[in-house]
Write a protein that binds this DNA or RNA. Structure first.
Length: 918
DNA sequence: TGCGTCACG
DNA sequence: GACGTACGTGACGCAG
């Protein structure tokens, strides 16, 4: 036996560091456990993985018991300016104690003193008893204790801190560290120290005078007049600080030294703890390395993991059973519902079946329109009729006493409405719940959510339909047993997810954004999708034909210039032709693939230096884009039944709270060039109607003015002035067309999280000049710099930022060690608060719009949302009245949830087409 | 499937 | 001092 070696773990210090260094993990129950995971991994390492020479024979974890200690009696403001711990760290504190207990290690805390004092006291006794001591911490206060036989160990950096390391860090040996700390003070603990004295000066003074008292006695010998003056003023503060940083090393020991002897932890409680929080890697290690006992304990835990257990799901084929399920749902008051159809296109989807879940593991599937796969008639399948089932479900789905739960409920709502059934409040959508809680931390599809929160991977759609003989099989051909296993499971999963999320909603303070913004938006957007928008097919076909001719002409000319045919649409071939075959003055190569860059900026550069083929490629590109993405694709998207185009608005796709639009995307219809704008003219009103477009004017910049509290910007908006002109005057000293245009670019760059490089590129100037503009801008509008810094700090602290309405936008990369990733996240959060708040506002406007139109007796329908614009189809005689309602709703959409110090401006236009409405 | 490109806010 | 850089989307064609 060698010398006994005591390890004292500074638990509280470790948790804070682990919290900030590790990603925000959550366990299967949804509890945040990032710091707990780091702490557990650290204990594991200490107990199992240190080599024999440095392994502990004795071990204790020391924690801070409460906030009030004897130091508060000495100095009321001690640790007073410390912010409260982040909200997702709070629930982790009790889990830390669970972790220590799981390892069967003593956990020591004592009211009235800090962990540091307990550590100092144990260290003293242990050293006297002939132990070696290691303190697991990187806290600078504890560096005072280093002496022969005692070192600090920073497990995260895997670094030991001995006497030499202390001297290197502080410039003085450990026994003098307390003196240096007293002079320099500590903002985190609110130890005053001496103003203006940092680590350098403090060390110099202590080297010269020995200790704080020596400095005080020798004040007259100090030559620097300013330092001398502040020292003379701060004598009392220096003495107080010296006492505050002095560790108390005579705290009575709660446990005698030999009670801290380390034994291999019994595997059963450890396995239970690791299993409960989903620390699978460590559980697997325990199984591998913990011998027979470890393997047994691990197996036992894995066997009782919250498994996704359920009896066989029921296929409902009789009226009696259907009514039994409906009665059950009514009795419970909650039902998860999922519809199965034969198409992903909700406007064409035929209802094939409905599944219900009323309790975990308790779910059924009601087929209504399955066809047997071998071509036999529908009557061959044993199922209830569509209308019978729908009529039975109708009152349930409209029942105000039954909470309807769905995953992406908008889809079910649209399908049901197409079959004449309304799904009415109260309802919840697990996708939207996940979005409110976890936007920016992964996606919100059911399979992903189930794996993440339930530890269960549902049967995949592909697997079910893949089992059917025909290659193009849809769900109606899936045999009932397989269909039931799949469909009922989805309802079951949805119901279980709902339980997990509902519980987190209040705790994580996102109830308002969910209940006041995203959830009420769901039926509104469903109506917009069903409404669709009329598109002039002939006009699009005409454009396609015209583009076709131009494309062919350009293709010929480009091939001729290139000296032979090639695929112009292939960036790879185009780059080789331009820069290798034609030997044009070459520019950038992509950093990733090493391919020649052939994007607009590059081709424009060539075109400007008179190279005609570059201009032709640009034109070819533009026309090809317009034809393939718009004029051709949109024609194919016209629904034959309604003769309109029905987009899909994704409610949970972006990290900022915006909607997105797909199949087709109607949020990126061209407008910036005249050629593209023709496509917008093909979006037309139904007979007897006009289209109305209502845009928020500069909403994001207005929000910057409010959030960053910039008086000058706010004044301009209040007076209806020109913000870009203001910026031009402040930054360039004069307002003309050129400076105003550049000021506009600068203003935009603020919204995006400015960088000198980015601005330089946009303005076509060098970086230094761009940096000067930015400096000038910040000095004129200091609120903006503060806003950006505060936003980034908040994000680093919490892992997310919030909009004015309380929407959380997570940015896990904000603490990345990779600088590029981190800076990217910093710009993203600066933008997210603004973009997200604007998204909240227009969403509130959309929620308020249908009742406001109805109250005015108006027949207008809301068709589209394009981030800061709403498009309506308005009966011809109602333009004026509708304009007033629309403007009123949009300009007041933030109220009463949020008050703004700038007005919101809305511009409204009407016309026979979308192009004419602008 | 990933990449480059480009349409929008 | 080097490093890569505006923020948020979706759709298309090409090439592996």
């Amino acid at each position: 036996m060698g010398k006994p070696h005591l390890y004292l773990v500074d638990g509280s210090g470790f948790i804070f560091r682990a919290y900030h260094r590790l990603p925000p993990l959550t366990d299967p129950q949804g509890t945040p456990v990032g710091a707990v995971y780091g702490f557990t991994a650290m204990l594991w390492k200490l107990v199992n993985e240190l080599n024999a020479a440095e392994a502990p024979s004795h071990l204790a974890v020391v924690l801070d018991a409460g906030s009030h200690t004897f130091r508060n009696d000495m100095y009321a403001d001690y640790k007073a300016n410390r912010p409260p711990p982040p909200e997702d760290l709070l629930p982790q504190f009790p889990l830390i104690r669970d972790a220590v207990r799981a390892f069967s290690i003593p956990c020591i805390e004592e009211a009235g003193v800090e962990a540091d004092d307990i550590i100092a006291s144990y260290a003293k006794v242990a050293l006297a008893a002939g132990y070696d001591v290691t303190i697991v911490s990187s806290d600078k206060d504890l560096m005072q204790l280093v002496e022969p036989g005692l070192d600090l160990y920073d497990t995260m950096a895997n670094k030991r801190i001995d006497r030499e390391a202390v001297i290197e860090k502080f410039g003085v040996p450990p026994e003098k560290v307390g003196e240096v700390l007293a002079l320099m003070g500590d903002t985190a603990d609110n130890i005053p120290g001496v103003r203006g004295v940092g680590p350098k000066t403090a060390a110099e003074l202590i080297v010269q005078f020995g200790d704080v008292e020596g400095v005080i006695a020798g004040i007259e010998a100090i030559r620097k007049p300013k330092l001398k003056a502040t020292l003379a003023e701060s004598i009392n503060m220096a003495r107080l600080s010296r006492e505050l940083v002095r560790l108390k090393d005579d705290v009575p020991l709660a446990e005698p030294l030999d009670a801290l002897g380390l034994r291999p932890p019994p595997p059963a409680p450890l396995a239970a703890f690791l299993g409960k929080h989903g620390f699978k890697a460590m559980l697997a290690k325990l199984s591998r390395e913990g011998g027979d006992e470890g393997r047994a304990a691990t197996a036992a835990v894995q066997a009782e993991q919250p498994k996704f257990v359920h009896a066989d799901y029921e296929t409902v084929t009789t009226a009696e059973r259907l009514h039994a399920w409906i009665m059950d749902a009514r009795a419970v008051g909650v039902v998860a519902i999922d519809t199965e159809t034969d198409s992903v296109d909700q406007m064409r989807a035929r209802l094939v079946g409905v599944s219900l879940a009323t309790a975990p593991g308790c779910a059924c599937y009601i087929p209504v329109d399955h066809r047997s796969g071998d071509g036999l008639l529908a009557e061959k399948v044993d199922q209830l009729g569509l209308s019978e089932v729908l009529e039975a479900l109708r009152p349930l789905l409209a029942d105000p006493a039954v909470l309807k739960v769905g995953q992406n409920l908008k889809y079910d709502m649209v399908v049901l409405r197409q079959h004449g059934i309304e799904l009415l409040a109260p309802f919840d959508d697990t996708m939207l719940l996940s979005y409110a809680l976890d936007a920016g931390r992964g996606h919100h599809g059911m399979d992903e959510l189930s794996a993440k929160h339930l530890g269960h991977t549902p049967i995949s759609f592909k697997m079910v339909t893949g089992g059917v003989a025909s290659a193009k099989a849809d769900f109606s051909q899936v045999p009932l047993r397989a269909a039931t296993d799949y469909a009922a499971e989805d309802a079951d999963v949805t119901l279980r997810l709902h339980t997990v999320f509902k519980d987190r909603l209040w705790r994580e303070q996102v109830t308002r954004i969910y209940e006041q913004v995203d959830r009420p938006l769901l039926p509104v957007v469903a109506s917009m999708e069903i409404a669709g928008i009329r598109v002039d097919r002939a006009a699009l076909a005409g454009l396609s034909a015209a583009y076709e001719i131009e494309i062919a002409r350009l293709e010929g000319e480009i091939h001729e210039a290139a000296g032979g045919p090639f695929t112009i649409g292939s960036p790879k071939q185009l780059g080789e032709v331009l820069f290798e075959r034609m030997k044009l003055p070459s520019g950038r190569k992509s950093s990733k693939t090493g391919a020649w860059a052939t994007d607009v900026t590059e081709l424009e550069r060539l075109a400007e230096s008179g190279i005609e083929v570059a201009a032709k490629v640009l034109e070819w590109r533009q026309l090809s884009k317009l034809k393939s993405t718009y004029t051709d694709a949109l024609q194919a998207q016209i629904n034959p039944k309604t003769d309109r185009v029905h987009t899909n608005f994704a409610l949970a796709a972006t990290t900022t709270g915006r909607l997105s639009s797909n199949d087709p995307n109607l949020q990126n219809i061209p407008i910036r060039t005249e050629l593209g704008r023709r496509i917008r003219h093909a979006f037309v009103a139904a007979p007897g109607h006009v289209l109305m477009a209502a845009d928020y004017n500069q909403i994001e910049l207005r929000l910057v003015a409010h959030v960053a509290d910039v008086p000058e910007l706010k004044a301009v908006y209040a007076e209806g002035g020109d913000v870009h002109a203001l910026t031009a005057r402040e930054v360039f000293g004069e307002v003309n067309r050129d400076t105003r245009a550049r000021a506009k670019t600068i203003n935009f760059s603020i919204i995006y999280g400015i960088s000198a490089f980015g601005l330089a590129q946009r303005l076509g100037i060098d970086r230094g000049e761009a940096a000067r503009y930015i400096d000038l801008y910040f000095s004129r509008f200091p609120g903006i710099r503060n806003y950006m810094a505060e936003t980034i700090n908040a994000a680093k602290d919490k892992g997310f930022v919030t909009t004015l309405f309380g929407r959380k936008c997570h940015a896990p990369l904000i603490t990345s060690r990779n600088q590029g990733e981190r800076q990217f996240a910093e710009r993203a959060v600066v933008n997210a608060r603004i973009q997200g708040t604007a998204a909240d506002i227009i969403k509130r406007a959309m929620v308020a719009m249908p009742p406001a139109l109805a109250a005015g007796g108006l027949g207008a329908r809301m068709l589209l949302q394009v981030h800061d614009e709403l498009v309506f189809e308005v009966p011809e005689g109602e333009v004026e009245a509708t304009t007033a309602v629309v403007r009123g709703v949009m300009e007041n959409a933030h109220r009463p949830l949020v008050e703004l110090s700038v007005p919101l401006g809305v511009e409204v236009g009407t016309g026979i087409s979308w192009g004419d409405a602008h």
